[in-house]
Structures are given as structure tokens and as C-alpha cells.
Design a protein around this nucleic acid. Structure first.
Lengths: 213, 213
DNA sequence: AGACTAATCGGAGAATTCTCCGTTTACAAG
DNA sequence: CTTGTAAACGGAGAATTCTCCGATTAGTCT
């Protein structure tokens, strides 16, 4: 799976990445368009790549050449909104962007991340269903680095790499769906819970644990 | 998927659950045996149910009749060890079983759960790959109730239902695999991190959050 | 323009998951 | 032992994901 395809283009052996050929770029755009429309109409499940290819007027091989596999296409669709989100928390207005203390930004980030996941819930669920490492590729790594950086500022004592994984773990498309459907929780309740968690954690890690661990 | 199959037997319309017919029980056992052996030999990925059926000497239809789908078979294999684990934390010796204060049991439980997931890591990963609600079925619910009960004792102020989800979220086969392979963490480090998290959280939730949330 | 080459195209087909349904079998009642 | 019937069997086949490779085309170099 995904032997050479990475992000937008095939990796060159060495040197400058060459642009995609015109027909390839056209097909990429067309496939993304069609897939996005079909998902908007009938949900992210039950989308067969065969059908996407047929509607887009290309062969199945082309879909797989462009995106590697199902997860690759899903990730491409996620990436569209992801870029905007990343800009918001990296350079947008506070409290999501810089300008306030780290603790506040952590809460704002988790809050926005919940919205982010809910906005493309079906796609995020698909991402987990697919290729095995996709869950922790691309967007996850960016979120992790960002959160770990904020944690370093909020509680320097903590193991920020592990703690960032911990805080990101509950912001999971399937868990959120489960909490909504089976526990009857609202998004607001989930956000509130995460905010309190972040407060407790950032505060708690500033003092050593009682058993020294 | 899984229209009638639930746990070990087909649901009767009403009244006492009837035992499986002899041939059905024999096939169930044989399929589980064969699947377990194949997984021990070649890993949990790359197990085709067609092949399991062929080796077990039954038709594919039988496999699906017994277990509903791939996830059902995976869950059945998980259940074998799960029962022992549940006995251990419900009625076994402390600190996993009863006899010490809740905080200690929470740490012991997370510790044991990590071992539990690692012991059948491939199967747990499969479980997430498969049917969409399987991740939060069976074992998860039991773990959640147990942890929520302990949390109620350790920090009565907290929203124990949500908090239990939060503490269970990082004990995830794929996340652990990712932390091991890509972050170079050891199981020991993960356990230590979770223990500290549990300490911080149970301690922190005993006092109200600063912003009142 | 013409030709060369490397990238791309596309669909047939392999592998896999799961469904359907005609046939067979267990087992309980007479 | 026979018979009735509900349950189980099993394999053909539908649907889907992904691979392979001969045919085609875009872009470049004379």
C-alpha cells in the first residue's frame, strides 16, 4: 500500500519534486470532487472506489495510482479542511492561535479539534477502518506536535510527548460517535469534559506524583 | 451484520436460550481452534475466513453463521482470555482485585489492561478495523463499568462515565503499537505514564476546576 | 512538426468479505 | 424406529478492494 505516493505527488528519485502531469492533476481534482459530492450525498460509508472512478469518468487504476488506496483518498478529503484548521491554531487569532497563555490554548485546541472531527466524522471513522498506520499519519502528527509544544509551556515537568497522545486519544471519531449515540452525551458535554481534563492535567503535572512515578 | 448472533448463540424468539445443536457447537469450537492456531503461526492480519473455513473443514457459510462476521470471530478469540482477565479484576487478589483502596486498583487495572491488549495486540487491531461499533462492544463496556466504579470511589466529584472513557482511550492497540514503533517507547514507559496520569487525574478531580467547568 | 520517452491510463482479474438459498441433519415426539 | 421440522450446512456468487501490465498520451528535445 502507498508505495510511492505521499501527499500530493509521486516521490522523485532525487532532486526537485516535479509537478504532476496535466492529465494526472486533472484526474486528481476530478476524483476528489466526485468523492466529496458523493460523500455529501450518501455518507462516507458505502462509497465504493469503483463507483467513484466510474462517475469521475476514469479507470479504477487511476484512482489507486493517484491516492494509493482507500485511506489515501480519505486523507486527501480530510486534508482540504485540515489545512485551514492548522492555519487557525498555528497563526490564527487567540485563543486558538498564539497570544494567550498555553493552558488556555490547550483547551481551545481540544475544543476546536472536537468540532473538526465532528465536521468530518464519517471520514475520520473511515480513516481508522483503513490502512493500519493511517490513523497516526499526517494530521495526527501535526496535532501532536502542536499540543506537545503547548504542554511544554504549560507544565514543563510532564512527559509532554506521552501526555499529548493521552489528550488526543479521547478525541476520536468513533469514541465521540459512541458517546453521542450510546451514552446520550452532547458535543458540549464532551467539550466540557475535555476542558476540565486539560485543566486538571496541566495543573496536576506541575507537582510530582506521590509515588515518584 | 450480526443480525441475530450475539455472544455464543442465536437469540431465541422468547424464553430460555436453547443450547446449540451438537454439530453447531462442534463447528464453533473447530473454527476457533483453527483460527487461533493460524493466528499464532502467521499473525492476525492476512487471515482469510475462506482459508479458516477450508482448514476447519466447513463451508464459509458456517463461519459466518457462527460468528456473524470477521469482527465476531475476532471477538470470540479475544473473549477466551478476556474472561480470565475479568475474573482477575473483579474477584482476584489485590491490587487488581478488591482489597485495596480504589486509587491503587485503578493503576493496577490500567497496568493489567496494557498487558492484556499487548498480549492480543493483533486481534485488538483487527477489532478496530472491522465492524464499526465492535470497538465499544463487549469487553470495552465491562472495562468501562469497572473503571467508572473505581473512579466513583476515588474521586466522587468527577464525571466518572466520561473520565473512564478518557482513561481507556489511550489503552488502544494501535496507539500502543504506534508509540512502540514510531516513538520508541517501551511498555514499561507507557505503563508508567498511565499510572502517573491516573494519579494526577484522581487527585485533580477532587477539587473543582478553576473556571468552574 | 516529428519523434522519443517516461508517466499515466484503464480495465481485466486476483483476493477477500459477506449473502443467499437449496439441501442435509440433529433431535424430539409419537 | 419412523417421521416432522427447525436449525445448520456449504458453496456459488455478488460486491469490494487492490494489482498488473499493455496501450496511450503529455511534454520535451531536435
Amino acid at each position: 500500500m502507498l508505495p510511492f505516493v505521499c501527499g500530493r505527488r509521486t516521490l522523485p528519485v532525487i532532486g526537485q519534486p516535479q509537478p504532476e502531469r496535466a492529465d494526472a492533476a486533472r484526474n486528481r481534482r476530478k476524483i476528489i470532487e466526485v468523492a466529496a459530492r458523493m460523500i455529501a450525498e450518501q455518507g462516507a460509508d458505502d462509497i465504493s472506489l469503483d463507483e467513484v472512478a466510474r462517475v469521475a469518468g476514469v479507470g479504477v487504476g487511476t484512482v489507486y495510482r493517484r491516492f494509493g488506496d482507500r485511506a489515501g483518498l480519505v486523507l486527501a478529503l480530510i486534508d482540504e479542511q485540515e489545512r485551514r484548521f492548522q492555519e487557525a491554531f498555528l497563526a490564527g487569532p487567540p485563543p486558538l492561535g498564539p497570544g494567550v497563555r498555553a493552558r488556555e490554548r490547550i483547551t481551545a485546541f481540544l475544543d476546536a479539534l472536537v468540532d473538526r472531527v465532528v465536521a468530518q466524522q464519517g471520514l475520520f471513522v473511515q480513516l481508522e477502518r483503513c490502512g493500519r498506520t493511517m490513523r497516526y499519519s499526517g494530521p495526527y502528527r501535526v496535532h501532536h506536535i502542536h499540543l506537545a509544544t503547548l504542554l511544554a509551556e504549560a507544565c514543563p515537568e510532564a512527559d509532554r510527548v506521552f501526555l499529548a497522545d493521552v489528550l488526543l486519544a479521547p478525541v476520536n471519531a468513533r469514541l465521540i460517535a459512541f458517546q453521542q449515540e450510546e451514552r446520550g452525551m452532547t458535543i458540549e458535554q464532551i467539550k466540557t469534559g475535555l476542558a476540565r481534563l486539560a485543566t486538571v492535567v496541566t495543573r496536576g503535572y506541575s507537582v510530582p506524583a506521590e509515588d515518584g512515578r
